[in-house]
Amino acid sequence: MTAADRIRILTVDDHAVFRDGIAAIIAPQPDMLLVGEATNGAEAVDSFRNLRPDVVLMDLQMPVRSGIQAITEIRALAPSARIVVLTTYDGDVQAVRALKAGACGYLLKSSLRKELLDTIRIVHGGGRYVPAGVAQQIAIHAAEEPLTSREISILELVAAGKPNKVIAWELSLSEDTVKAHLRSVYSKLDVNDRTQAVTTALRRGIIAL
Rank of each mutant, 00 (worst) to 15 (best):
T195K: 15
D176A: 14
I152R: 15
K109W: 09
S172L: 12
I122C: 10
E175H: 06
K179H: 00
Y129L: 09
L202V: 09
P163K: 02
S187E: 10
S184M: 04
E170G: 02
S149V: 12
S111H: 09
I140P: 05
E156H: 00
A208P: 00
V178R: 07
L107V: 13
A139R: 12
T177G: 06
A168Q: 07
H141P: 11
L182Q: 14
Y106K: 04
T148I: 11
R183L: 08
S153D: 15
L189C: 11
T200Y: 02
E170C: 06
E170A: 01
A143C: 01
S174K: 13
D190K: 12
Y186N: 06
Q136S: 07
I138M: 15
A132N: 13
V198G: 07
G161W: 09
L147H: 06
L202H: 02
A101T: 04
V185M: 11
R128P: 00
L173W: 08
A132W: 11
V158S: 04
I206E: 07
I120S: 10
A208H: 12
R128M: 09
A103M: 11
L117K: 02
G125E: 10
T177A: 14
G126F: 08
Y129C: 06
G127A: 00
D190R: 09
E145L: 15
L189H: 09
G127H: 02
V178N: 00
A139V: 12
Y186L: 06
I167R: 12
V198E: 03
H124R: 04
R121Y: 10
G133A: 11
V123R: 01
K114F: 13
G161L: 01
S184E: 02
G161Y: 00
I167V: 14
E156T: 04
Y106L: 06
I154E: 01
P131G: 01
L171V: 07
R121T: 03
V123C: 03
T119A: 11
Q136D: 01
L116C: 03
K100D: 14
A142Q: 10
T119K: 10
T148P: 07
T195R: 15
S153F: 05
G105P: 07
L155H: 06
S110E: 11
T119E: 08
L112E: 14
V191W: 05
G205A: 00
T195V: 15
K188I: 02
G127Q: 00
Y129A: 01
L182T: 14
N164R: 12
R113L: 12
A135Y: 05
A139E: 14
L173M: 15
G133T: 12
T199S: 05
R113Q: 15
G126P: 00
S187K: 13
A168S: 03
Q196N: 03
K109V: 12
P131F: 04
L116I: 13
V158K: 03
S172G: 14
A103H: 09
R121N: 00
A139K: 12
S153E: 13
K179F: 00
A180C: 11
R194L: 14
G126D: 03
K188Y: 08
I206F: 02
V178W: 07
T119F: 06
W169N: 13
K188L: 05
P146S: 10
K109T: 09
V178T: 08
T119Q: 10
A159G: 05
K165R: 04
S110K: 03
E170N: 09
K179R: 09
A159C: 07
P146T: 03
E145W: 04
E151Y: 02
T200P: 07
S110W: 00
